[in-house]
Measured scan of single mutants.
Amino acid sequence: EAHFQVQLEQLRSMGFLNREANLQALIATGGDVDAAVEKLRQS
């Protein structure tokens, strides 16, 4: 989780407030914030 701290903060600042969902999306996308946003929008 600490590995994705910067990305988690970016997602939070973009309005994605579900930390667990954000973390799962980042893990699934290897930390790619843009891909994580797409994944979160689809769910």
Rank of each mutant, 00 (worst) to 15 (best):
L40F: 04
N22I: 01
A28K: 10
D34T: 11
L26W: 00
V37Y: 02
A2N: 10
E1H: 02
D32Q: 13
Q10S: 09
D32F: 08
E38P: 10
L23I: 12
G31K: 03
Q10W: 02
N18V: 13
E1F: 03
T29I: 02
E38H: 15
R19L: 08
R19E: 13
V6D: 11
V37M: 09
Q24L: 06
E9H: 07
V33N: 02
T29R: 04
E20A: 06
L11F: 02
Q5Y: 13
D34P: 13
E20C: 04
M14Y: 11
N22F: 00
Q24N: 12
L11Q: 00
F16W: 13
V37K: 14
L8F: 10
E1Q: 06
E38W: 03
Q7G: 03
R12K: 14
L23F: 08
L23C: 14
R19H: 11
A28Y: 05
T29E: 09
E9G: 10
R41L: 03
R41Q: 15
A21L: 10
A25N: 06
G31D: 01
Q42P: 14
N18P: 01
M14I: 07
G30W: 02
E38A: 12
G31S: 04
E9I: 04
R12C: 12
R12W: 07
L11Y: 00
Q42W: 08
R41H: 05
K39L: 10
L11P: 00
Q10C: 04
Q24V: 07
K39P: 05
G15S: 06
I27K: 08
H3T: 15
L11K: 01
L17T: 15
D34I: 05
A35R: 11
D32L: 09
K39M: 10
Q42T: 10
A28G: 11
N22W: 00
L8G: 05
L11R: 00
Q5G: 08
N22T: 06
A21V: 11
H3L: 08
G30V: 08
Q10I: 04
Q42A: 13
F16M: 14
L26V: 08
E20F: 03
R41S: 07
A28W: 02
E38S: 10
V37Q: 11
G30F: 04
D34L: 05
H3W: 02
I27C: 08
L17W: 09
A2F: 03
S13G: 11
K39Y: 08
Q10T: 07
Q24K: 14
M14W: 06
E20S: 07
E9M: 02
N22M: 08
A21Q: 14
S13D: 14
L23M: 13
E38Y: 05
L40H: 11
H3A: 09
G15P: 00
A35H: 15
L17R: 07
V37S: 11
L23A: 11
A35E: 11
L26H: 01
A36N: 00
I27S: 14
F16G: 01
E9T: 04
E38V: 10
F4Q: 08
